[in-house]
Design a protein around this nucleic acid. Structure first.
Lengths: 149, 149
DNA sequence: ATAACTGCAAACTTTTTGCTCGATG
DNA sequence: CATCGAGCAAAAAGTTTGCAGTTAT
């Protein structure tokens, strides 16, 4: 495969290199799309973004790549009710998600206090916390400009 | 369908009646299995329990029934990574889940403090909390009776 | 009576995989 | 040049659905 090569590297591509994954043209392109994502796209969406730049990348390859990157700890996968799983970069510091129940928009947040409580709860129940998933679902409050708090 | 009838009623069956669902033999049986469940079974497991008592109930019917009951707010569905969705009664008071990462066992807990923090976080971000999902993943601590910590 | 429900098989959706060929380190 | 990756189509896996016959109300 030629023509996909770009000399520009990016964070995800660097991680591939570090993990010893082969840098094929397809992977470079997928890595770039992943590096640029600021949302939480599913595999179909990723494939579309990739194909927009080079239509010779198959859906299978995107599936295989994100799966591999999840296993390598580069991406985080989020299961969604009755639909396609969504991905995001795992590299960033830990955070949880607030999901706008009207629009589906995902907003990140983190709360050390909640993290601490979680560990405490697990410990009290005889467990060591090895992971968690916290999603809040909310409705936008009116943006009452007349000094609402 | 006859022969499935049982005069014994149960909570879920009562809810079906209240919602105006027809009480077929299959539904009565499924309702009974659901009422008795103390775990978080998936549709296959439910079907097996049902079929153990009467093998004339199809998997489709179980799927259709739990879906309907979820829509009616009688059951809660939990999506699981790469597998089958699990169900539990929605009627019980709110709680979250601690999942044994080794065995997949699900343990319920609740923490008013975490609940409160969640509301506060949502509010600070301009949202009214309408729901949430919290799952902790943990590894059993050694139950070392000889006091090692 | 008739609208709701069931069983069966087939359809669907998302994700994985076998195979063969091509590209990378 | 040995291995790993890609593309394609087919298989899995979980869930839904069309249809024709049954049943609860």
């Amino acid at each position: 495969m030629e023509g996909l090569k770009s000399t520009m590297t990016n964070r995800i591509e660097a991680q591939c290199r570090a993990k010893g994954l082969r840098l094929t043209g397809q992977r470079r392109l997928i890595a770039q799309v992943l590096s640029e994502m600021r949302d939480h796209p599913d595999v179909m969406a990723l494939h579309q973004r990739v194909v927009a730049r080079d239509d010779r990348v198959s859906l299978s390859t995107v599936y295989r790549t994100v799966k591999r990157l999840e296993e390598e700890g580069v991406l985080a996968r989020h299961e969604v009710r009755g639909g396609r799983a969504r991905y995001e970069k795992a590299s960033k510091r830990h955070h949880d998600h607030l999901i706008d129940s009207a629009t589906g928009r995902v907003i990140e947040f983190s709360s050390p206090e909640i993290e601490r409580l979680q560990e405490e709860i697990a410990r009290r129940m005889g467990y060591r916390l090895v992971g968690h998933r916290l999603e809040l679902y909310g409705e936008r409050l009116e943006q009452d400009t007349s000094r609402k708090q």
